[in-house]
Amino acid sequence: MEAQKVEMFIMSNSKFFESHQINGIRERLIAIDDSKWAMISTIQLKDPTTILIVSILAGSLGIDRFMLGDTGLGIGKLLTCGGLGIWTIVDWFSIQKATREKNMQKIQQFLY
C-alpha cells in the first residue's frame, strides 16, 4: 500500500493501539495489497478514553465490557454489581489496555 496512505492511517488512529504495536501495523499495512484499503479505512475502532469514561460512570453495571464486545464478562459484572465494586476498580486501570488489544484483534483480521 502507498506509504502516504499508511502514514495518514497511523496518524489518525495511533491512539487506538499500544505504542509498541504501531510499527508492526505500519510495516504490515505497507506490505498488504491496495484492494484492502477500503475495508481497513472503514474499520470502527473503539476509543480507549471513551471506554474509560463509561467504565468510571457505569462500570458497576458492566456497560464498559458490553461496549468492548465482552458480553459474557459484561453479564458477569452486571449480575455481581461490578464484582461487589472490586472488579469495577480493577477495570478502571485495565480497560484502556483491553480496548487497545481489542482494536488490535479487529485490525489483524484485515492485515493477515
Binding site: S19, I86, I89, V90, W92, F93, K97
Partner: peptide, 16 residues
Amino acid sequence: HEAETASNSYLMSLIA
C-alpha cells in the same frame, strides 16, 4: 506500555 501497566498495579492497590 509495560511501565504504565506495572505502575497501574500499585496505583490500583492504593485506590482499592
